[in-house]
Design a protein around this nucleic acid. Structure first.
Length: 474
RNA sequence: GGAGAGAUGGCCGAGCGGCUGAAGGCGGCGGUUUGCUAAACCGUUAUAGGGUCAAAAGCUCUAUCGGGGGUUCGAAUCCCCCUCUCUCCGCCA
């Protein structure tokens, strides 16, 4: 979410940034000015009435105290004689006096007006909040302007694309013929876009998870987290999946998509996580972090569940696009001034997994049109897939700046300069390190041999019990 | 699932119908003292949204004691609903 004050003061800039994304500023910001203005007017007049109400209430309290000491002091604290007198005074209670009755009447009238005004103010506030919640993050200036992934810019390329003396096969052929991947039975038990891994295939998937977590925790300084795989809608709002992307999510029977569309986010409904980013980033929702604890670097393995509503017919072969896939995620919380460097570092941490596994890849800086809703800047890592002769996304590393922190209310208290430091929003970042399923298939395609077997990368062998090659299983 | 107890500021913890945004303590910050450190003492220390202001500071108003609703002239305090935490019982991987 963008800062309301910032949008108000920089409306032209916001419009320009939205256009760069290919969004329609008029549709998103349309009546922003008018809405903002009437919201503030409603708040102002409501607060004036409230000030008057409090004033009347004070007058009443003073009247009670002057007219009837019994109300000013606790009976139990009075000497006996005062107590007897105080009880007698109830007959001349201030609340029954003409002045008291006048105050009560004015307050009552005031309340009627106030109830109405407050309703208007709340409705306007809600409208503004909701429209703000649907505006994507502003991309940074160094993000290239472009419409689609065709306009992304390759920043670097690593590794040698392997040359084969034979025609390399796609992973679905390799997986089936090796007997380690069964898509037909997966379709039977769960439907399309699911996979069953068997034998060395299952072992390889598990090995990759451990390998990635180990590298990130021991070498890159991340703390391992194992979060819930279901979250509530408040969390999904916090990281930006809701309200806009409800269709991409699987939700449980207690989750109400229509309520979400109205801008109601609950803490007692359940949705399957589309990425570990959601539970891990929301770990610190509504908290004020200690300055000295930053940056916080967390890594988590989770399955990820995606409805893939808009992807009908896309990537139907193999396991590129699944309703459930495994992923090791990297998440950071940083001071604003550090997020840029931490973003570079996080991307490097993901790249090192690819390098350790000897998988050729390139790093791509996403253009404005391809950058995700919540992100200010995103690098994609794309792994080379010889079976299909193309680079395919295997990691996406984003700096969200304060966008998610503002939605999730994650702050820290700066201690610099000794001045009275007000809490500020942290910057959040995350990236895949890596998508395990796609790493699995990249290994199959890159390490396939003429005889149809697949070599296991050196670094991974300790994780598969020393196995150096996957051969056909019976 | 059943019974009970609880949720208060960065943290702990009082308050249980009226100048209570909230005692006290801890922590933080500033200062005094001190050869340095420590200790002691004094002061200060919530967040958000409005208004004022060119802007900031300041001043001012409003809201906030788990969330929502109600009673009342007035609610942290009384009532109802919900969520979460803890204890006991039941069930369960």
């Amino acid at each position: 979410m963008l800062d309301l004050n910032f949008v108000r003061a920089n409306l032209e800039l916001v419009e320009e940034k939205l256009r760069a994304r290919g969004a329609d500023p008029a549709a998103l910001l349309g009546d922003f000015r008018a809405l903002d203005k009437s919201r503030r007017e409603a708040i102002t007049s409501s607060e004036q009435l409230k000030a008057r109400r409090n004033e009347l209430s004070n007058q009443f309290a003073m009247g009670m105290r002057a007219g009837s000491p019994s109300s000013a002091r606790k009976l139990s604290e009075m000497p006996t004689m005062d107590r007897i007198r105080a009880v007698g005074e109830k007959a001349v209670d201030f609340s029954k006096s003409p002045e008291g009755l006048r105050l009560i009447e004015e307050t009552r009238l005031l309340k009627e007006k106030l109830d109405q005004l407050d309703q208007t103010a709340a409705a306007l506030d809600e409208q503004l909040r909701l429209s703000l919640a649907r505006i994507p993050n502003l991309t940074r200036d160094e993000v290239p302007v472009g419409k689609s992934e065709a306009d992304n810019v390759t920043v670097k390329t690593w590794g040698k694309v392997p040359a084969f003396a034979f025609t390399p096969k796609p992973h679905w052929e390799l997986g089936e013929s090796l007997g380690i991947l069964d898509l037909e039975r997966a379709a039977k038990i769960s439907g399309a876009r699911f996979a069953v891994y068997m034998g060395a295939g299952a072992r390889l998937e598990r090995a990759l998870i451990s390998f990635m977590l180990d590298l990130h925790t021991s070498k890159h300084g991340y703390t391992e987290i194992l979060p819930p795989f279901m979250v509530n809608s408040k969390s999904l709002f916090g990281t930006g999946q809701l309200p806009k992307f409800a269709d991409d999510l699987f939700r449980c029977s207690d989750a109400d998509a229509e309520a979400v569309a109205r801008g109601e986010f609950k803490d007692n409904d359940h949705w399957l996580i589309p990425t570990a980013e959601v539970p891990v980033t929301n770990l610190y929702r509504d908290e004020i972090l200690d300055d000295s604890s930053l940056p916080i670097r967390l890594t988590a393995y989770t399955p990820c569940f995606r409805a893939e509503a808009g992807a009908a017919g896309k990537d139907t072969r193999g396991i590129i696009r699944q309703h459930q896939f495994q992923k090791v995620e990297l998440v950071k919380f940083t001071r604003p001034e550090d997020s840029d460097a931490e973003h570079e570092g996080l991307t490097r941490d993901a790249e090192e997994i690819l390098e350790a596994l000897g998988l050729p890849y390139r790093r791509v800086l996403l253009c404005t049109g391809d950058t995700g809703f919540s992100s200010a800047k995103t690098y994609d890592l794309e792994v080379w897939l010889p079976g299909q002769s193309l680079y395919r996304e295997i990691s996406s590393c984003s700096n969200f700046e304060a966008f998610q922190a503002r939605r999730a209310n994650i702050r820290y208290r700066p201690t610099a300069q000794g001045a009275k430091a007000k809490p500020e929003f942290v910057h959040t970042l995350n990236g895949s390190g890596l998508a395990v399923g796609r790493t699995w298939l990249a290994i199959l395609e890159n390490y396939q041999q003429a005889d149809g077997s697949v070599l296991i990368p050196e670094a991974l062998r300790p994780y598969v019990g020393g196995l150096d090659r996957i051969v056909r299983q019976s």
